[in-house]
């Protein structure tokens, strides 16, 4: 899918390091966020500083005295991950350090809501930081509340579905486009359901100097009401039914990486998750319509070349 520039050494299932950088943490079984962090760090390697705002990955990884990161890692304030990472990159550079990368692993809430301002500043300054947003579509760490990336219809603890409300009333923010609008050097969307594509994108960002961004779809069995063994599958299905798309923004151009001729069933994808169980056919139709409008716009404006 992703075009790999020739001079970047490819990382694949065959040659990816056996070394673990995120290990012994307390995430739930089947946690998609932890898969994203684990894979990304394998690509980025040991000369990496990681910064994580409050959120599930911070909560499960740094419980004193049991630290789960093999590389230098730090928890930041909830709104301040991008600026703290910028400071790390600036400080390390000022001290003369070379050949290192700084990465953020932030949730959807920490990115699209409370951390958006700091992220915007980081991109504006073009600081040498890779920002990875693992999107589990709610504030999971605090008990499954609605975030700006919670999709229409989702039942959360602050958007209960009942006689008067369908669950979440709003659609996901167009985070990828918001980031791209900064004219960032490199941004991409990904899903842990397509791990090689995600790895390629992390690898590309690793070798891009300056601010880069990856929005990776990462399932959460606890918050989604899905079996723990289907986390990869469901994250793949989200892409295959068109609710999540794989794309890149580079050289000021958008590119769709995967452009299915036919989408798999949205209804199948939704009804197997506890968070969407209550949705009526009318609500599901709304989701499909929203998907189709978005894809029509993407196909019209973005490149679909391989």
């Amino acid at each position: 899918m992703t075009n790999q520039t020739i001079d970047i050494p490819r990382v694949t299932a065959k040659n990816i390091t056996e070394k673990e950088f995120f290990y012994g943490h307390k995430a739930c079984a089947g946690c998609g966020g932890s898969v994203a962090v684990r894979l990304a760090l394998k690509v980025l390697g040991e000369r990496t500083y990681s910064a994580l705002p409050a959120g599930c990955m911070a909560a499960v990884g740094f419980i004193f005295p049991q630290m789960a990161f093999a590389n230098n890692s730090i928890i930041t304030t909830f709104p301040g991950v991008a600026s703290m990472a910028s400071g790390i990159a600036a400080g390390a550079k000022a001290l003369g350090q070379k050949d290192f990368k700084t990465v953020c692993f932030a949730g959807d809430g920490g990115t699209a809501d409370i951390g958006l301002q700091a992220l915007s500043g980081m991109i504006d300054r073009d600081d040498d930081v890779l920002y990875i947003c693992y999107d589990n579509e709610a504030y999971m760490n605090t008990g499954i509340q609605k975030s700006g990336l919670t999709p229409y219809g989702t039942q959360t603890t602050t958007t209960p579905a009942g006689k008067n409300l369908p669950g979440t009333k709003t659609n996901k923010k167009n985070l990828f486009e918001i980031i791209a609008a900064h004219d960032i050097k490199y941004a991409a969307t990904a899903s842990i359901g397509y791990p090689q594509d995600f790895i390629n994108k992390v690898n590309k960002a690793k070798h891009t100097k300056g601010a880069t961004f990856i929005h990776v779809y990462a399932s959460c069995p606890t918050g989604w009401g899905t079996p723990t063994h289907t986390s990869i599958e469901i994250a793949k299905e989200a892409v295959d039914c068109g609710l999540i798309f794989l794309a890149e923004y580079e050289n000021s151009e958008f590119k769709i990486n995967k452009n299915p001729k036919e989408f798999k069933s949205v209804k199948d994808y939704l009804t197997k998750q506890g968070r969407f169980k209550h949705m009526t056919d009318v609500d599901i139709e709304k989701v499909i319509q929203h998907r189709d409008i978005k894809w029509e716009r993407m196909r019209r404006n973005w490149s679909t070349k391989k």
């Binding site: 500083y49 600026s83 400071g87």
Partner: peptide, 11 residues
Amino acid sequence: SAAMGASSVGA
């Protein structure tokens, strides 16, 4: 936050 980040690596 940025000052803390820089300080966390010894700057």
